[in-house]
Design a protein around this nucleic acid. Structure first.
Length: 310
RNA sequence: CGCGGAGUAGAGCAAUCCGGUAGCUCGUCGGGCUCAUAACCCGGAGGUUGUAGGUUCAAAUCCUAUCUCCGCAA
C-alpha cells in the first residue's frame, strides 16, 4: 500500500519506523516546518523529519494545507492511505477524502476521553489508572472520528508523563500496524464515538506547573509527574523558582500549614492541604542544576519551617 | 550581541565587595559507643579554587580574554 505519513514530535517517530520496517511504501512524510529551539535559537528540524531523512523519504513541511495546498501535494504522491500521528495541524475536508482509505489518526488516549493536544499529560494529571491508544478514521472535527482500534495501557502510581510517552508511542506503532493490516483485510468495524462522554484538552501552559500547596498530597504528586518532564511543576523558595522534578507520596501526617517544610534532614517533606506530607526527591533551583534531595539539603539552602510558594 | 544565575575535595554549598597559602554539610576510609537508628563520638584521606594571560611581595578573591552548565524569555 502507498502510505503518506504525517507527524512531527518524538511521539510520532516509532510509528514512522514501524512503517519503514513494513512492506508498505512510504511515499511522503509531512511534518511542521523547522523551528528555532533552545537558548541559542538554533533552527532545528522536527524529529520526524530527521527520521524520514534517514530512510530517504520525501519530506513536506507546508505551512498550510488549506485552499487546496495539501491536496496538491497529495496529487504528487498518490497515497492510498494517510497516517496521522501528532501532526499538529487540522486537515481540511478535501485533504481527508483524497486518499482511497482516507486518513487514519493515532491518538494517545482512550477516546472519546481527552480529545485534543495533550492527552497523555491529562491522564496522568487526573490520576487515571489507565489510558491507551486509539486509532480512528479522521473526520473534520478534532479527534471526533469513528474508532477503529483501541489498546489499553495501565498507569503506575509514580509513572510520569515522560514514561508513558515512551510506552504509548510504542503501543501506538503496534496499533497503527494492526489497523493498516485490518484495512487491507477489510475486517475493521468502525464504531462511532459516544460524543456525550467526550472531554477536550487544550495545549499545556507554564502556569499549570505552579503548585498550590493547599491541595491534597496526591493531587500535587499527580501534577508533578503529569507535567514531567515538560513543562514541569514548580513552586517558590525565598523568591526563586524551585522546580519539582520528582516527588513521592508518603503516609506522614502533619499539622503544619500547607507548603511548610516539615523535615529537612535525611529527606525533604512538605506539608500539603490534606495534612499529609509530600516528599520532594529531586528538585532544581533557578540557575542551578537539578539535584536529588540529599544534595540539595547538604547546601543548607532550605530549612525546616521554611514555607514554599512565595 | 534578548534578560539573569553559576563554575571551589566524590556531591551540595561558604569564603570573593574590604587580596594574605581554603571552611561547612553529606559521602568515603579507620576506630568507638548503642538493644537499636537516614542516631551519636573520635580520627584520616581527598582541592595547582573551569581555562589562559595580566596587576601584586602575595590572587579563589582585582583586571582582560575564553570555555562550559543552568533559570527566564522565545
Amino acid at each position: 500500500m502507498r502510505i503518506a505519513f504525517m507527524g512531527t514530535p518524538d511521539f510520532s517517530v516509532p510509528c514512522l519506523r514501524a512503517l519503514a520496517a513494513s512492506k508498505h511504501e512510504v511515499v511522503g512524510v509531512f511534518c511542521q516546518p523547522d523551528k528555532p529551539v533552545g537558548r541559542k535559537q538554533i533552527l532545528t528540524p522536527p524529529p520526524v523529519k530527521e527520521e524520514a531523512l534517514i530512510h530517504g523519504y520525501r519530506v513536506f513541511q507546508p505551512t498550510t494545507l488549506k485552499n487546496g495546498a495539501g491536496v496538491a501535494l497529495l496529487r504528487e504522491i498518490e497515497p492510498d492511505l494517510v497516517i496521522v500521528v501528532a501532526y499538529g495541524k487540522i486537515l481540511p475536508p478535501d485533504f481527508l477524502s483524497f486518499p482511497k482509505y482516507g486518513c487514519v489518526n493515532v491518538h494517545a488516549s482512550l477516546l472519546p476521553r481527552y480529545r485534543g493536544a495533550s492527552p497523555i499529560h491529562r491522564a496522568v494529571l487526573n490520576g487515571d489508572m489507565e489510558t491507551g491508544v486509539t486509532t480512528m478514521q479522521l473526520d473534520e472535527g478534532m479527534d471526533t472520528g469513528d474508532i477503529l482500534l483501541v489498546k489499553k495501557v495501565p498507569i503506575g502510581p509514580d509513572e510520569t508523563t515522560e514514561d508513558l510517552f515512551d510506552v504509548l508511542s510504542a503501543v501506538g506503532a503496534e496499533a497503527m500496524m494492526e489497523t493498516i493490516g485490518q484495512i487491507e483485510a477489510g475486517t475493521l468495524h468502525p464504531v462511532a464515538q459516544d460524543h456525550d462522554r467526550a472531554t477536550a484538552v487544550g495545549l499545556l501552559t507554564k502556569e499549570l506547573g505552579e503548585v498550590d500547596w493547599t491541595k491534597p498530597m496526591q493531587t500535587i504528586h499527580n501534577q508533578v509527574r503529569g507535567l514531567y518532564s515538560w513543562p514541569g511543576a514548580y513552586t517558590f523558595l525565598g523568591g526563586s523558582v524551585l522546580k519539582l522534578h520528582r516527588t513521592a507520596r508518603t503516609a506522614v501526617g502533619t499539622s503544619k500549614a500547607p507548603g511548610t517544610v516539615v523535615k529537612a534532614r535525611g529527606q525533604l517533606l512538605v506539608a500539603c492541604g490534606d495534612g499529609l506530607c509530600l516528599e520532594l526527591k529531586e528538585v532544581q533551583l533557578s540557575g542551578k542544576k537539578r539535584m536529588d534531595a540529599a544534595a540539595f539539603l547538604n547546601g543548607n539552602q532550605i530549612a525546616e519551617g521554611d514555607v514554599l510558594g512565595s
